[in-house]
């Protein structure tokens, strides 16, 4: 058979392959590795120094898009403009902060012929850290006990319930471990000044951190799940190197998660395996992790599988992956010219 390969145009965000990287470049590598198509990659960037804009063999063309805060109308207008030029088949957003908008926009995008493969708003919100405890209780996962509070005066009662040490978490980011009430109060003030209320107070779980990158088919099935343990982390807590593991407990958790939520798309489970051997879900990231290319390397190309499902194809679940595959992240100084930077900064296209 020498039929021409299918032409496919995929737009991807998250090109910030820096020290705390977005997953975009890894997702693109996965899609390019798949031999089923002839792919054209449209990079969507927010800032003009995202390395993925300039890297060889990553994007065929890059467009700047407005930040999520500009709202769905502005984002849709920009995507529509890009679509007119590029005829996008599939769009893969890779940042937490932009997902809310893209989930909302997905019916409108579908209407103009752009496919996405995203969870619903309800699924997206159920795994939000404010709701995670309720979610865990409902579906029978181990989740750290947590209480959402609005006032520092609620702390003593909550602390008594959870015991020390406890974790004080901001609404969006940051977590501080407190050993005493004074420390907890200090943490409350610090985090509420930065992120506002509510503040989440959480039971401290000690143990080993495991991450699972997984892909749900939207009907309760799990297409792929690959567990990884970080071998070394940067001072920002990001994985520097990691290794695939063999442990059915974690695969079982991913399958249970997909079944319970009918999750549609990629996600990452952050699991803490407690000292007494209980796997707690600490957080659920509603998109592929930055280390997603390890799943490709281990034999489960999650980004390519997602593109196929977005295009409406049936994808068979992967059943095995290579154990003991490592990823080691490295940095690389790319050389380019000022004109390139000027072009993307001023025209928003490169």
């Amino acid at each position: 058979m020498n039929a021409k390969k299918r032409q496919l145009t995929v737009a991807v965000t998250g090109l910030n392959a820096i020290d705390s990287p977005g997953p975009g470049v890894a997702v693109i590598r996965g899609i390019r590795d798949c031999a089923d198509w002839d792919v054209r990659i449209i990079g969507l960037s927010y800032e003009s120094l995202e390395p993925g804009i300039y890297m060889e063999g990553v994007c065929d063309k890059v467009y700047q898009i407005p930040y999520p805060a500009a709202g769905t109308e502005a984002i849709f207008n920009r995507i529509e403009y890009i679509h007119e030029k590029e005829s996008i088949d599939v769009l893969i957003p890779n940042f937490d902060a932009e997902l809310y908008n893209f989930i909302k926009l997905s019916p409108k995008l579908e209407e103009i012929g752009i496919h996405t493969f995203l969870p619903t708003t309800a699924q997206f919100e159920a795994r939000d850290k404010i709701n995670l405890f309720e979610f865990g209780k409902k579906h029978g996962f181990y989740v750290p006990k947590q209480v959402v509070i609005y006032s520092v005066s609620e702390l003593p009662k909550v602390a008594e319930e959870l015991g020390y040490p406890l974790v004080v978490k901001g609404k969006f980011y940051d977590a501080i471990i407190a050993q005493t009430l004074e420390q907890a109060q200090k943490a409350f003030h610090k985090l509420s000044a930065k992120w506002g209320t509510p503040i989440i107070v959480q039971e401290f779980i000690n143990g080993t951190e495991i991450n699972v990158a997984a892909l749900g088919d939207g009907k309760g099935g799990t297409i792929s799940a690959v567990p990884m343990r970080k071998m070394y982390i940067t001072d920002k807590g990001k994985a520097w190197a990691g290794i695939t593991l063999e442990d059915d407990r974690f695969l079982e958790m991913a399958r249970k998660f997909c079944k319970a939520t009918k999750w549609r798309g990629g996600y990452e489970l952050e699991i803490m395996l407690s000292i007494d051997g209980k796997p707690y879900i600490m957080e659920v990231n509603p998109r592929f992790p930055a280390w997603i290319y390890l799943t490709v390397g281990a034999g489960q190309n999650q980004p390519a599988a997602l593109v196929k499902m977005a295009m409406g194809h049936d994808v068979k679940p992967y059943d095995k992956y290579a154990i003991g595959k490592l990823f080691i992240r490295y940095s690389w100084d790319l050389i380019t010219d000022i004109e390139d930077f000027q072009k993307i900064s001023a025209f928003g296209e490169y």
Binding site: I338, E339, F341, Q342, S345, A346
Partner: peptide, 18 residues
């Protein structure tokens, strides 16, 4: 100064658009 309104200051490394 480029025709499209880019200005590059080689002394400071700053770029501008006008």
């Amino acid at each position: 100064v480029s025709e499209t309104g880019f200005i590059f200051n080689p002394t400071s490394g700053d770029s501008f658009t006008a």
